[in-house]
Amino acid sequence: MAERRTINTEVLLDEVRAHLAEGKRVRLRVKGKSMHPFILEDDMLVLAPAESLRKGDIVLARINKSRYVVHRIIGITNGIITLMGDGNLYGREECRREDIFGIALSVIHNGEVTELLSVSSRLIASVWRSLLPFRRIIWKIKKYI
């Protein structure tokens, strides 16, 4: 009667999206490593409905009406919002405002809460992003070692 089951991520995130649309906050467990080092696999993330957005926000978005991502906004130009995972070296996604359903308020790692909208969190993330060219070089060097 009590077997362990897994829930399809898309189905779960459809449900998350519905609750965000109702104005509720949602807490969920993170899968994947694309937001490393700020959000790690198995961390818990608190999302709220996305009312206003700006560069540096981490958002739940649907890309090409299919897959969901929780990535950071790295640019907003003429209604096109560009996202990128903090842990990614190259991959970017583009979407529109209506494809963004939630904004990440905080992350909980081993019981410790980090506010993601705070000035310090934004500053650290911005420094991390400015190091992207160096991270790419280090990644290339590592490939040859």
């Binding site: 009667m1 009590a2 077997e3 362990r4 089951r5 829930i7 399809n8 189905v11 779960l12 449900e15 998350v16 609750h19 104005g23 509720k24 906050r25 949602v26 807490r27 969920l28 467990r29 818990m44 608190v46």
Partner: peptide, 28 residues
């Protein structure tokens, strides 16, 4: 109900917790 799965979710006034889902089969 999440798709075909039945799960127990923690809900308070303004927060729904999907981080600790408990799945139930039909008899549960």
């Amino acid at each position: 109900r999440l798709g075909t799965e039945a799960v127990i979710v923690a809900e308070s006034l303004d927060l729904i917790a999907f981080d600790r889902l408990v799945s139930l089969n039909d008899s549960a």
